[in-house]
Design a protein around this nucleic acid. Structure first.
Lengths: 362, 362
DNA sequence: GTTAGCACTTGAGACCTTTGAGTGCTAATC
DNA sequence: GATTAGCACTCAAAGGTCTCAAGTGCTAAC
């Protein structure tokens, strides 16, 4: 495909940039005449045609059919975002909107991220996602137990990363407050520092002897612990503004739209993609660059959200290849910046508390 | 529209039923000739035409255009599900699939429900939802606190309905283990039995005096409590198999599809609909019967999941008006039945534990 | 290296016709 | 009075033809 991607004359770059930006704006193939008339390029349409032919040879452009203009190829977009793109300046109004929408009462990470994805979708007019990446190494930090009544107690599990999970445990055998306290102690002795993988049969057996005559408790408790840890490993993802996909003519094709929606809903692959990404910079995945075959017709742009130096999630945008990358990048920057600010522990004086807890129903 | 919906001759019922079932199966308008040839109706096409004309007058049928067959109206579907529908028998294979898919290791309600919605979508081939209904009256049951270190403790909040939420609280002022214990005691004295609405300024002020010199703690703690309670009120909803919508020609129309996807993603309105529903029976909402204007072209069928006599959620299916109601009803019955079984406390002997806890990250 | 000019290609859209399924109505029949 | 055969009528869907306009590649002149 590409002949010599390194050597693009200034004029070629200018033409390529003009084509890409026109196509992003209009969604239609761009012709040579259009460029001479609407973009400041000082040469005739014939010259542009020659240049375009060469750019096509190099793999930056494509032609839907002989008598149509050119559209950028994936390689073209890639070159554009790497070398040609100009910073978009977020407008005051957009900043205002971000602040407005993020200024909600909630302080839970999940909800902040969720709201951030809504903001991102709203401002960019693309489908947006909020991802909580897969945790690679979750270990048990400590246990606490709370005695409720004879037959119920709550198991509190604090993991690395200050994640707290609680579980109601119901037994058929009556308990005492003291015993429930011992449970926590034993669990702490045996399990602190362990990861899900390290919970194995010998461990369980040693616990069973220790807990006699409540050995019946061991396996359910361990199951809960194991469940909890596994869930944490998994990552999460929320979607906002899925319906916006339908506004773009590239998703007129029902079949590919169906597949894309399926992939988004499945979450798995996208969470993977995001989890593997670097921590600080923007990440742009253009079409078939990703291993997610199904995203072939789409681009994913996301930016991690960092709190206290730790990546706690990412906000991203999914849309057609001809996404307005400049604008999306700038807006994601603004949104994640805002989220980080909300999460920043150094601003405790202002908010006084930080919450990392979570809930579950039963 | 309707002249006298009560008096349908047996033959009219038979014809109506045949039309609806044909249309559900094929998605196309049904003509008189088709009926004589494929359904056992002992009269000529002309007679059927007369009958169909009358059924149309009564409001049970509609005609897309003069030279087309008839399709059922919403009223027609309503009459069908109320009076004409025949029970569908879930096949052994389907039962097997339900068991297979539900036999996963997890025991958390959220995850069970989520899996159930996937099963429902898979088996019915419609979009499915798992709803956790709005709680109407959540009150505080009790507090516990867990001392972590000088600057951190965990606040555990047990609400009515045995829902547990935990929050990490970070302070700028150093704490003692004893003090953290007192916090719980105070909170219990002042807040036990209260609902979110009852947390007001006077209450906060009385707490602030009590907590001096840690009065700075009061407002953040109360915020957490309030947040928590509000979130519980809200209800939740998960979607599975959204892409399946695109398989039905009635959603070819991008504009209405966009609106439907928007409504589903928004969740709000559907959660309302489900939350208001009765507890035990099936619920069938056909098109514009619901106040959710946007579902005008679609039907929602759902069945509550009951645990220990309490409605803890619902599994439902969203699809075109010409949904295969009989099959959907039977499969939802089977799926919710399976879920209830998994949740049933009486089977504790088998699983020994019950978990109601939940998680959150930070 | 650039440009004017021209023949060529091709999808989109407008318009027309055909086709066939299905109807409503009338008059004959049971 | 209910049923049915028969027939004229309607209308969307499908296919065909034509035109239109945008855009190209190429050649030859600058």
């Amino acid at each position: 495909m590409a002949k010599d991607p390194g050597v693009l004359t200034e004029r070629k770059k200018k033409i390529l940039k003009a084509i890409i930006e026109s196509h992003i704006a209009n969604g239609e193939p761009v012709g040579s005449k259009y460029l001479t008339e609407n973009k400041q390029i000082e040469c005739s349409s014939a010259t542009i045609r020659n240049e375009m032919a060469e750019l096509e040879d190099m793999g930056y452009l494509e032609q839907p059919h002989t008598s149509a203009g050119r559209i950028p190829s994936e390689l073209g977009y890639r070159f554009y975002v790497d070398s040609l793109i100009e910073d978009y300046s977020v407008t005051a109004k957009e900043v205002e909107q971000i602040h407005q929408m993020m200024r909600s009462k909630v302080s839970e990470l999940d909800q902040i991220m969720n709201m951030a994805s809504k903001v991102a979708s709203h401002l960019t007019n693309y489908t947006a996602i909020a991802v909580k990446p897969r945790e690679t190494l979750v270990t048990i930090n400590r246990f606490e137990t709370i005695f409720i009544d004879e037959y119920h107690f709550i198991l509190v599990l604090v993991t690395s990363g200050d994640v707290v999970k609680t579980k109601n445990i119901t037994t058929t055998r009556s308990l005492t407050r003291a015993f429930v306290g011992q449970v926590a102690d034993s669990l702490n002795t045996h399990l602190a520092g362990k990861s899900a993988q390290e919970i194995n049969l010998p461990l369980m057996m040693s616990l069973e002897t220790e807990f006699a005559p409540y050995s019946e408790l061991v396996s359910p408790v361990m199951k809960v612990v194991y469940d909890t840890m596994s869930v944490l490993d998994q990552g999460e993802m929320q979607v906002a503004g899925m319906d916006r996909l339908l506004e773009y003519p590239e998703y007129k094709d029902m079949e590919s739209l169906k597949r894309l929606i399926g992939t988004i809903e499945e979450k798995e692959e996208i969470v993977n993609l995001v989890s593997e990404a670097g921590r600080d910079q923007h990440n742009i995945v253009i079409g078939s660059e990703s291993e997610v075959k199904v995203m072939e017709n789409s681009s994913l742009v996301f930016k991690p959200v960092v709190r206290n130096g730790k990546t706690v999630g990412a906000i991203g945008v999914i849309g057609p290849l001809r996404m307005d990358y400049a604008r999306v990048l700038a807006l994601l920057e603004a949104v994640t910046g805002n989220v980080s600010e909300l999460l920043d522990d150094r601003k405790l004086d202002e908010r006084k508390i930080e919450d990392k807890g979570d809930t579950n129903h039963g």
